[in-house]
Design a protein around this nucleic acid. Structure first.
Length: 1095
RNA sequence: GCCGAAGUGGCGGAAUUGGUAGACGCGCACGACUCAAAAUCGUGUAUCGCAAGAUGUGAGAGUUCGAUUCUCUCCUUCGGCACCA
């Protein structure tokens, strides 16, 4: 008390209040749009203003951005560091329901409290940029963005079953569900079919994934997003269904024999077991349709199992035939069909006069069964749109395709074949295992089950299973110890396209309806789930992949010259005779190199060898000679197959007890693909079975409707009259932009109705409106947007928060967001929701040319949690919440700031300890006391201090840039410790210290700055520069090692070269002791660090 | 199961183009100041050992003159995804 007069006492309450008022009065932190300066946009994830207020964990990120933004200001940047409120959402609404008050009121109160808490910590926010997502002036633009998405087809209505939380009484997005439970309340989510608005985020899946690579974000967040998007590349492959039909194929004008795809189609269909008749028509060069129809009817019987296919003029014949039938056929396929003489070439226009073009379409329609119309988009003979005309008379489905040759004149027309047979499309990432597909599995929701209802023998059993599966919720369906259930669709079989084998079709709930095609091929030998299923239901298991690294390698030669057998045995080969013409050598894969070099020697002695497809198979032929160096490997392979090498491989590894192997490897038992690697087989087999490479994502479209009150109304109007006028548009009319915002009305009851309608539906005066298009009676959409809507674009509004013409001015957006937000800080909990949604919206706005950069947040940092003193998450439930107001009151805002930054690495979680905080308080008080030394004369100048100052200034700058605040503060403490040892501090050094301290402890720095006689705010000062020539001291103490162990220390000066340093070292008494009697083999000198003697 | 991050004193943590492990802070011990206490200041503080010295960064191996840092195998903790074909 005697030493410290009252005025000298560090009174944090007084000082902090004083400077907070000063900053506010002088508008120190006002952001300007001065575009001559470089900009730095520093952003915090804005809080949801809950009733509980902030706890000490919340400000951790805000303190970091505050330090960072102050540092940027001092380095000449124009800084935007705003704050606002994400205030829509369930807690406010639930509070409103309970207390029967408008949530607006609670939100206002909470914001006021939050703001007062933040202001006490001394942040440099420019409050003139404050925003609130529940302000109609703000959500006007949220609605506007929604409308732009609607216009582009990215917002659509859907009736698909969605996740419904029975407790929150609202639909949820996929992202809101964790382990089948509602993320918010932990209730088990159920599937509920209902009308909802959905945003097509999947259109952006590829870009959302790719652009992650260039972001300066924590790897873990990027990885989470990659997992969430879940891209997988695979193949879509069609499996024919084995229903056998009688096909009647009718060719067109002149298109007989080889000029047409029909012979090929006939062969393909016959291969699949169908009966096919393809008659050659009479007078093909001068056709008479009536005559041809009669000809066919005389020759061929039609029944309910017949499929009639007509190509070109053959389609006209088909129509004539159908007119005359007594009973309907199965299916009519018209390929490049026509019903009027509309040929483009003159010769064929004769047809107009050759025959009658009048048809009894009622009769035809009755007899046609299922109708399929195929049109070539590049048809040179008949005009486009003919299929549509036919459809108008016959019904059925039109497919507009690109034929192999115009007018379907290719000799091979796969698309036609596809429409002839019924198929199941599957998605697989392992097309290499296709030969091992022994059954198919459909999801219970698969449409095919309904289509084949009449042909499934056990349809009752199937329907029962499907019904049960649909009732199950996500948890029941996926968890349950993963026990497999399922039912076979009896009477139906699929055909494995690789080998034509019939395989059973099952329905099982382990196949999900909304991923891939909702159907899979099951390869039990190489997939765990299929394996479990096959074991349970006793389905065949066929091994087709062998692990490459453990594979025995096969080696076939015709005969071995003398001595060679011995050579091969030496490298571990076993030799057996093969067939009646050669021998097989088997050897472990790891010996491949040695065997190969023996093979090389054989080659030189006049034998020839080749390697099949890079698999570790070595095959030598004596009689056939193929020189691989002359590019004859293909020929050699063909020869190999001819002499049965591929077959030999099939026999080689037959295992009566197949085992599960899910890895990739070398193909076996896969026909001509045997011996090649999985990687090569995937595209090759896909092509072989006419599948196509396809990409699937796990990401689902964003369910955007909430059946709750407290959210942005979706700006859509439903009009029945418009729906009648234009059925395709379904009467969905967007609210005209001039009528935005659609303001959330006041209601009597905020409680959700539970019926899937929002409480807004009850307000007749609000719901009933005039249709903006036709003026008729219409109704407003009553769903609201999810909480994530407002936060998906808020960083844009901060830039120009009061603009009532646009969401923000173009020029300001260009300046502040030319490369996105520079620094974004928040918690990891937003990895797969806010951060994906915001990227999606930003990319959409980028496509609209609203923003310049394709990504919103260039750099992202995640703050670690602050846990309660019991190491649990701070929560009212545990009673471990610490209110920053208390800490600020008792220890001061600056102490809180230093402590939170010094607790540990920024991204790591740390346990709160009020005891530990005392260190930060002491540090601040030590600096306070240091002020008394300023200007006092020092006895002698300390050159080391100069070095330390320069080093510290450099380090702090780098550390702030890297968010390494804990080490920055440590460096400040080291500097302070050394200054305490000085008798006096020069005013210049003092000013430097205060300036590097200012971002961390702004109140303290301002106070001491003012005391030192400066008038302007310290935050307007420039960051001190360091002298890079003064970073290393002239003298250094280095370690001396003997054989890598530290044995002593010596003092050297920096200019000394190695020999000088060695000289000092060997004269050192302690070192000497370790070198006596030893011979120094080598010395290693690391400049300024250490010297090592190797003895 | 797949992917990612991490494991260092009593505690929070520091140190990476491979170069003195434990900076800085908390705590603790002793001392100074005081009638006394608090505050403050000083000294010490990885482990074993009186010492010389030995050991030591989750475990084990390897590369190297030298490894917390690089390679391999394994263990533990945390996070993401998960019947996703």
């Amino acid at each position: 008390m005697k030493k410290n007069s009252k005025a000298d006492y560090y009174n944090h309450l007084k000082i902090e209040k004083k400077w907070q008022k000063f900053w506010a009065d002088k508008k120190i932190y006002k952001t300007t749009d001065d575009t001559s300066k470089p900009k730095s946009y520093v952003l915090d994830m804005f809080p949801y203003p809950s009733g509980e207020g902030l706890h000490v964990g919340h400000p951790k990120g805000y303190i970091a951005t505050d330090i960072y933004s102050r540092f940027k200001r001092m380095n000449g940047y124009n800084v935007l560091h705003p704050m606002g409120w994400d205030a829509f959402g369930l807690p406010a609404e639930n509070y409103a329901i309970k207390n029967k008050v408008n949530p607006e009121i609670a939100v206002k109160k909470n914001i006021k409290y939050f703001k007062s808490q933040l202001e006490k910590i001394g942040f440099d926010y420019d409050w003139t940029h404050e925003i609130n997502t529940t302000d109609p002036k703000y959500y006007k633009w949220t609605q506007w963005i929604f409308l732009q998405m609607f216009k582009k087809g990215l917002a659509y209505e859907s009736w698909e079953p969605i996740n419904w939380c029975p407790s929150c009484q609202t639909g949820l997005a996929n992202e809101d569900v964790e382990d089948g439970k509602c993320e918010r309340c932990d209730s088990v989510v159920v599937k509920k079919p209902m009308r909802q608005w959905v945003l097509k985020i999947t259109d952006y899946a590829d870009r959302l994934l790719k652009d992650l690579d260039n972001l300066n974000w924590p790897e873990s967040i990027k990885e989470s997003q990659r997992n969430w998007i879940g891209r997988s590349e695979g193949s879509e492959i069609n499996f024919d269904i084995n229903k056998k039909y009688k096909f009647v194929l009718l060719h067109g004008w002149k298109s007989t024999g080889k000029d047409c795809f029909l012979p090929w189609l006939k062969a393909e269909l016959e291969k699949r077991g169908h009966e096919v008749v393809a008659p050659d028509m009479p007078h093909p060069f001068l056709p008479d349709v009536v005559e041809q129809a009669r000809f066919v009817l005389d020759k061929i019987k039609f029944d309910e199992n017949t499929i009639l296919l007509g190509h070109s003029l053959g389609s006209v014949v088909s129509l004539r035939i159908l007119e005359q039938l007594k009973t309907p056929i199965k299916k009519l396929i018209l390929v490049a069909g026509l019903m009027e003489p509309k040929f483009k070439d003159k010769e064929r226009m004769m047809a107009k006069y050759l025959m009658s073009w009048k048809f009894n379409f009622d009769k035809i329609k009755k007899n046609a069964g299922e109708v399929v119309l195929l049109e070539d988009t590049n048809d040179v003979l008949i005009p486009s749109g003919e299929a549509d005309t036919l459809q108008a008379h016959l019904g059925g489905s039109v497919f507009k395709l690109e034929a192999e040759k115009s007018h379907f004149c290719g000799r091979v027309e796969p698309t036609v074949l596809e429409h002839c047979t019924d198929q199941i499309k599957i998605f697989t990432t392992r097309a290499d295992t296709l030969f091992g597909a022994t059954y198919l599995v459909l999801a219970p929701e698969h449409l095919l089950i309904k289509k084949y209802e009449n042909q499934i023998e056990n349809i009752k059993e199937v329907k029962k299973y499907v019904g049960l599966a649909k009732k199950k919720n996500e948890i029941e369906r996926t968890a349950e110890d993963k026990t497999k259930t399922g039912v076979e669709l009896k009477g139906l079989k699929a055909i494995n396209p690789t080998n034509g084998k019939e395989i059973p079709i099952w329905v099982a709930d382990y196949v999900l309806p909304d991923y891939g095609t909702g159907a899979i091929m099951a390869v039990p030998a190489h997939d765990l789930r299929d394996w479990q299923f096959a074991k349970k239901f006793n389905l065949p298991i066929e091994t087709v992949i062998h692990p490459t690294d453990t594979a025995k390698t096969l080696f076939i030669i015709e005969s071995l010259a003398d001595g060679w057998a011995e050579e091969f045995k030496k490298v571990g080969a076993k030799i057996e005779p093969w067939e009646d013409w050669g021998v097989i050598l088997r050897f472990p894969a790891k010996m491949i190199d040695k065997v190969a070099s023996l093979g090389q020697k054989l080659l030189k002695e006049g034998n020839w060898y080749f390697e099949i497809n890079g698999a570790k198979n070595l095959i030598i032929f004596k009689q056939a000679i193929f020189d691989l160096n002359k590019g004859e490997s293909e020929k050699a392979k063909i020869y190999g197959r001819k002499v049965g090498v591929a077959e030999a491989q099939l026999d080689w590894d037959k295992n009566p007890n197949p085992e599960l192997y899910t890895g990739k490897g070398t193909l076996i038992y896969s026909g001509i693909f045997s011996g090649i690697s999985s990687e090569k087989a995937i595209p090759a087999i896909t092509k072989f079975v006419r599948g196509k490479i396809a990409v699937k994502y796990k990401l689902r479209d964003w369910v955007f409707s909430r059946q709750r009150y407290w959210g942005e109304p979706i700006p859509i109007i439903h009009c029945e009259k418009c729906a009648l006028n234009n059925p395709a548009g379904r009467g969905i009319v967007s609210v005209p932009e001039k009528d935005l915002p659609v303001v959330l009305p006041k209601v009597k009851s905020y409680a959700p109705t539970g019926t899937g309608e929002s409480p807004l539906a009850d307000i007749k005066s609000w719901v009933n409106v005039k249709c903006p298009v036709c003026g008729d009676k219409a109704k407003r959409e009553t769903n609201t947007m999810p909480q994530w809507a407002g936060s998906s674009w808020y960083y844009l509004r901060y830039i120009d928060p009061h603009n009532n013409k646009e969401l923000a001015s173009h020029s300001k957006l260009d300046y502040w967001l030319n490369n996105g937000v520079d620094m974004y800080v928040g918690g990891t909990e937003h990895a797969t929701r806010h951060l994906i949604y915001a990227r999606f919206w930003h990319k959409f706005l980028f496509d609209l040319d609203v923003v310049k950069a394709s990504e919103p947040f260039q750099q992202l940092k995640n703050q670690g949690l602050i846990l309660g003193s019991d190491s649990r998450k701070m929560s009212k439930r545990w009673g471990n919440v610490v209110n920053p107001d208390e800490v600020v009151k008792n220890y001061g805002a600056d102490t809180l700031r230093v402590y939170e930054m010094f607790m540990g690495p920024f991204e790591q979680s740390a346990t709160w300890s009020t005891d530990n905080m005392i260190g930060s308080r002491r540090f601040i008080e030590r600096i306070w006391r240091l002020a008394s030394k300023v200007g006092k004369k020092t006895d002698q100048v300390n050159p080391e201090l100069e070095i330390l100052f320069n080093k510290t200034i450099k380090k702090i700058g780098e550390d702030i840039d890297n968010f390494s605040f804990n080490t920055a503060i440590s460096a400040l403490m080291i500097l302070t410790n050394s200054l305490e040892k000085e008798a006096g501090i020069s005013p210049e050094k003092w000013a430097d210290l205060l300036r590097i301290l200012a971002p961390f402890t702004p109140h303290l720095a301002e106070e001491l700055w003012q005391k030192a006689g400066y008038k302007k705010s310290i935050i307007l000062e420039r960051w001190p520069a360091y002298d890079s020539a003064k970073l290393v001291s002239a003298k250094a103490i280095i370690a001396v090692q003997v054989n890598g162990k530290v044995r002593g220390e010596i003092e050297i000066s920096n200019e000394m070269d190695e020999s000088a340093v060695v000289k000092i070292a060997i004269e050192n008494e302690i070192i000497k002791k370790w070198l006596i009697g030893q011979k120094v083999k080598k010395t290693v000198y690391v400049k300024g660090r250490l010297l090592n003697f190797v003895v």
